[in-house]
């Protein structure tokens, strides 16, 4: 609904993002900047939240993105697409955040084996005890998707988030990332394959133990079978 009002207002104003940003660049026009902020803050917040997996960080990175946009306003070229310029700023900030987290993890986190053991126990618990409430199941499923996405390498997570959640076309993603469209396609293919593996339903150990020879393996899928 909000997006509809903004689009309507943009039509009524008869001015594009690029024109607004050009005014910000040329005259430090605060009203135009406020308009761009209002229009783009939600997509940027969602992008940053999806990429970092954390709502608080998403909010912080959104604010940092707009601060950097205003600070770098002189670098904006009128011929360039505003959205591409803005997505790039946000992506670079998210990448900086990944590097920082990675450095922290190297110093602070427990050894990999311990983490893997912990993670697998957590996942097991989720698969073992799906709640009866469909909302709870959906939330669990959402948490699994979030975890699977966060475990993907950065280059794969970026293409999935930009295509699926931000609804950018493959060509636009190539433009934002500054890589050929073929590379985007191949990254996306790898990403979807890895994601499929990560989300692959696991066997419930108790059922697996009780499995009889000749029984259909599909009947042992604790999650998919309960859904389908």
């Amino acid at each position: 609904m909000n997006g509809l009002w903004i689009s309507t207002l943009a039509l009524l104003r008869g001015r594009s993002d690029e024109e607004a940003m050009s005014r910000v660049k040329a005259y430090d026009d605060h009203e135009e900047f406020a308009w761009l902020l209002k229009k783009w803050q939600e997509p940027i917040r969602r992008l940053c939240t999806r990429l970092t997996g954390d709502a608080g960080q998403g909010e912080d990175l959104k604010q940092e993105t707009f601060l950097r946009l205003f600070r770098n306003r002189r670098q904006y070229e009128r011929s360039a697409k505003f959205s591409t310029f803005l997505w790039r700023i946000a992506l670079n900030l998210c990448r900086d955040e990944f590097r920082r987290q990675e450095r922290q993890r190297q110093f602070l986190s427990p050894p990999l084996d311990a983490r893997e053991a912990e993670g697998s126990e957590g996942a097991e618990a989720v698969w073992e005890a799906p709640g009866p409430d469909s909302n709870a199941v959906s939330a669990e499923e959402g948490a699994l998707v979030r975890k699977a996405l966060l475990e993907l390498p950065e280059i794969y997570r970026e293409v999935i988030v930009l295509r699926h959640y931000q609804d950018l076309k493959l060509g636009e993603i190539a433009e934002v990332l500054g890589i050929p469209e073929g590379t985007v396609n191949s990254r996306m293919a790898d990403a979807l394959t890895r994601l499929g593996r990560a989300l692959k339903p696991k066997l419930r150990p108790s059922l697996a133990r009780a499995a009889q020879p000749g029984k259909s393996p599909k009947s042992l899928l604790c999650y998919e079978s309960s859904k389908t």
């Binding site: 609904m1 009002w5 999806r50 499923e141 959640y165 499929g196």
Partner: peptide, 29 residues
């Protein structure tokens, strides 16, 4: 089919809207 299933499951990760945006949307509405 495997890819489609993965893509479909991506929809299950939902983000809440921010409070401010909701307030603004509701007031305009």
């Amino acid at each position: 089919a495997g890819w489609r299933a993965s893509v479909k499951r991506l929809d299950n990760w939902k983000l809440p809207r921010t409070g401010r945006a909701d307030v603004m949307g509701v007031s305009v509405l």
